[in-house]
Design a protein around this nucleic acid. Sequence first.
DNA 1: TCATAAAAGGATATTTTTGTCTTTTTTTAA
DNA 2: TTAAAAAAAGACAAAAATATCCTTTTATGA
Lengths: 151, 151
Amino acid sequence: MFSKACEYAMRAAVYIAKCSMEGKRVAVKEVAEATDIPEAFASKVLQRLARAGLVDSLRGKKGGFSMSASQQKRSLYEIVTLFEGEAYFNSCVLGLPVCSSQNPCPLHYQVVGLRDALKKSLQQTTIRKAATEVVDAGARLRFSSEDDESH
Amino acid sequence: MFSKACEYAMRAAVYIAKCSMEGKRVAVKEVAEATDIPEAFASKVLQRLARAGLVDSLRGKKGGFSMSASQQKRSLYEIVTLFEGEAYFNSCVLGLPVCSSQNPCPLHYQVVGLRDALKKSLQQTTIRKAATEVVDAGARLRFSSEDDESH
DNA sequence: TCATAAAAGGATATTTTTGTCTTTTTTTAA
DNA sequence: TTAAAAAAAGACAAAAATATCCTTTTATGA
Ligand code: FES
Ligand code: FES
């Protein structure tokens, strides 16, 4: 459905939002561990999110990543289009170069509604909302997030 | 959404079904042209469909690909799982190793319904039905399928 | 000032996907 | 029986995605 990079970006963003809600800035290393992303890859993904203005980054000792309130209000849709391309939710399921009701593929009317519903769902889901799911409902960002608490 | 191979497989299968409905066996070359798939790649994809029993293939002069009535009744879902793996419609959108209501990710309840709807839709859509769309409603399997008629 | 911690950036490596080419096998029909 | 046409099979090539490593820049605080 989504590329690894995109999945990683969503998991990482939600984790950073969660931390920011708790007033905590986080380093790549912690994000990577908390979300089960290879650390070096997480670094790349976060760079990209930072360049796109979806997260703030601060270099140097005591640096790390954080999200302001307004950044937390951005939608998961923005992350997906950043990593999958703007066209993602307008592309033909059968891979035809354009998707349109004028020239539909045989699956067009079957799936176009579902595709739009997914798009809307992601547009309406803020990063903050997803982070709240983690805090309030115990939703996971890695297989055994319980492991975090051990020390 | 789907890999190229999977998109190609669906387009090719629908085209072969259409031809078989017209009582015509088709060669890779024609399938490739009619569906805008690189010919050599189409050959690989069709081999795989044939090994899976979703299409019949006949070697030699006057050979080619065809689909029996029962093959035409197979669903597009079968093609997708063949190329994307059985787990495709049960996988976590955020890439977690398992998707379950027990251990949901923060998007689980948002998307699980849509994912299941897509699954059902593909399960209920036979290859024949998609081919009928092409014949009856003029649905496309390549950008300008009108070009076929020129000679 | 200097050691340390952290992100940024760049180069490289690995794996997967996509795509191509060549040879072999099978079938048909002249 | 032989030439031609077609799929099957295998090897190879190119591109993209994923992953890792190393160096540079920036900030902090001792
Ligand atoms: S044309 Fe294929 S999904 Fe719209
Ligand atoms: S757990 Fe992520 S979609 Fe079900």
